[in-house]
Computed example of a mutant assay.
Amino acid sequence: MRIIQIITFLSVGTLVSCGAPVPQPFDPSSGKWVDLSHSYGAETIYWPTSDKFALETVSEGDTDGGYYYSAYKFTTAEHGGTHLDAPVHFARGKHSTENIPISSLTGPAAVIDVSDVVQDNADYQIGVADIARWEALHGPVPAGAQVLFHTGWAARWPDAKRYLGTDERGAAATAKLRFPGLSPEAATFLAEERQIESVGLDTASLDFGRSTGFEAHRILMEKNIIGYENVTGLEQLPPIGAYLVALPMKIEGGSGGPLRIVAFVPSAAETVGQN
């Protein structure tokens, strides 16, 4: 007899009438994994002031022992490509990368699609009204949720000029950054009213490109809320019902790090609560 393991977790795929989430079992053999990560390589997009990813060959080819062997070394900034922002990135004394609990890196995903309102406005700041529009359809964002904002910006990757607003490098280029992000008001609402675990965007920053004060970062990270940046593939997730797993490189004392972020979408969740 084939035994199917049933895993139970707090799913936001089914909501009771008051909007509160209820635990739902799902069969991990019935559904799909979605990779939400860009690969690291020569075209990976980095902040204009950060060094880009580099891969150097240590050894590659047939050995004297008659077998093939390859090994490489790489260099990268913490904050480039699909990566995690640890709370200490903008909040003194908060979690560094290795201190983030696994429970804060995994959990039910609330996917808020704002692609319709940002597509013609690179300076758009996602507001409380955008979250309210989602909640009117799907119920309140539950405490402990992993909140992902789908702007559609990932479709511009890896064209840095379209994705960042500039393909120039250096400090002067930061004044030319243009992409949507989270408003301070929305960050405050999520941190204080919804008590979430993380915020992720398919853009280069939690704050919009023209920000100079990085208020959304500061508000969220003061509450030990994690950031995921340069996420991709969010169009493949339902608004509710997916389960997120976001595991960064465990850098001791790090302010962030390269991230492999994935989501499991149970078959029953694929048709739940479409936007």
Rank of each mutant, 00 (worst) to 15 (best):
G31L: 03
L10G: 04
G66D: 08
I45Q: 02
G41Y: 04
C18K: 13
L10S: 04
E60F: 08
F53L: 06
F53V: 05
D35E: 06
A54S: 11
P25R: 00
T49C: 05
Q5R: 12
E60Y: 10
F26N: 01
W33L: 15
I7H: 14
S70P: 00
V12K: 01
C18P: 00
T14A: 09
S30H: 11
C18H: 10
V16N: 12
V12T: 15
T63S: 15
I45P: 06
S39V: 10
V22Q: 09
V22L: 10
G41N: 13
V22S: 05
T8S: 15
E56L: 13
D27L: 07
T44W: 03
T44Y: 02
V34W: 03
T8A: 07
T44V: 10
V34D: 02
I6G: 05
P23D: 08
Y40W: 13
S29R: 11
Q5G: 13
T44R: 05
S59T: 13
V34Q: 09
G31E: 05
E56K: 15
F26D: 02
G19H: 08
S29P: 04
G61R: 08
Q24L: 12
S50T: 03
G65Y: 06
E43T: 14
S30G: 05
I45N: 03
Y69C: 02
S70C: 11
K52A: 14
D27F: 06
D62F: 11
L15D: 00
Y69E: 12
T49S: 07
S37L: 08
P21W: 04
T8H: 14
H38K: 14
Y40E: 00
D51Q: 10
D51T: 09
T57L: 09
W47M: 06
I7V: 15
H38L: 07
Q5V: 15
S30V: 08
V12I: 09
F9A: 12
D27E: 11
V16Q: 14
L10N: 12
K52R: 12
Q24T: 15
H38G: 02
A20R: 11
A42F: 01
T14R: 12
H38M: 09
V34E: 06
S17G: 09
V16T: 11
S59K: 11
I7P: 01
P48Y: 00
G65V: 03
G31F: 04
K52H: 09
S11E: 01
I6E: 08
Y46F: 13
G13Y: 02
Y67Q: 11
V16P: 00
L36Y: 03
K32V: 14
T57N: 10
Y67H: 13
G61F: 07
T8G: 12
P48N: 03
